[in-house]
């Protein structure tokens, strides 16, 4: 009991935008660079507010940081694959923004890679829709670019 108390006194409290308090160990907290620098700047006993992160996203990040400490390389790979598979696209986007804000390096590697896999071999039109981008080229500007890089459009899905 006493041991547990000293452990929790070491732990860091994080308050998400939707008002949930998470207690995490320093090992977990330090893997989020943004929090690491906040701990250095403030008294660590304080509750750290995260105005850009909600409880779902923080719980997912903690789940990842705890889960990827598996013993073998293949177990980590399996865990990462399952972790990414469980997320819907909407969740993926929200989590990616949270990960970018908190600077969780390993997820900043894994998540863009996952999105990149999703859009491999997709067309320009698909990706404009996917990222909600407005084409600001005039038709003739775009035609000129397409002509210069015609080779890059061989064998691309047009859906």
């Amino acid at each position: 009991m006493a041991e547990k108390a000293s452990e929790s006194s070491n732990s860091i409290s994080l308050n998400t935008v939707d008002g949930k308090i998470f207690k995490v160990s320093p090992t977990i907290a330090n893997q989020m660079q943004t929090i690491q620098s906040l701990i250095k700047a403030y008294d660590s006993s304080r509750v750290i507010s995260l105005p850009h992160v909600n409880a779902f996203h923080l719980s997912k990040i903690i789940e990842y940081l705890e889960g990827k400490s598996a013993t073998t390389v293949s177990a980590v790979k399996e865990f990462e694959a399952q972790f990414m598979k469980d997320l819907s696209l909407k969740q993926l986007k929200g989590l990616l923004i949270a990960v970018g804000y908190l600077k969780v390096n390993e997820l900043l590697e894994l998540m863009p890679k996952t999105v990149a896999k999703l859009i491999e071999n997709k067309s320009v039109e698909f990706l404009r829709k996917f990222f909600g981008i407005v084409n600001d080229f005039t038709p003739s500007e775009e035609a000129k670019i397409r002509e210069e890089i015609a080779w890059a459009f061989d064998g691309v899905d047009e859906d």
Binding site: P112, A116, E120, L127, I145, I149, A152
Partner: peptide
């Protein structure tokens, strides 16, 4: 970060996105 992890040929075709 996402574009950095795309294959080079796709990346070139994405020059005409915007």
């Amino acid at each position: 970060e996402i574009l950095l992890r795309l294959p080079v040929k796709l990346l070139v075709s994405l020059k005409c996105v915007c």
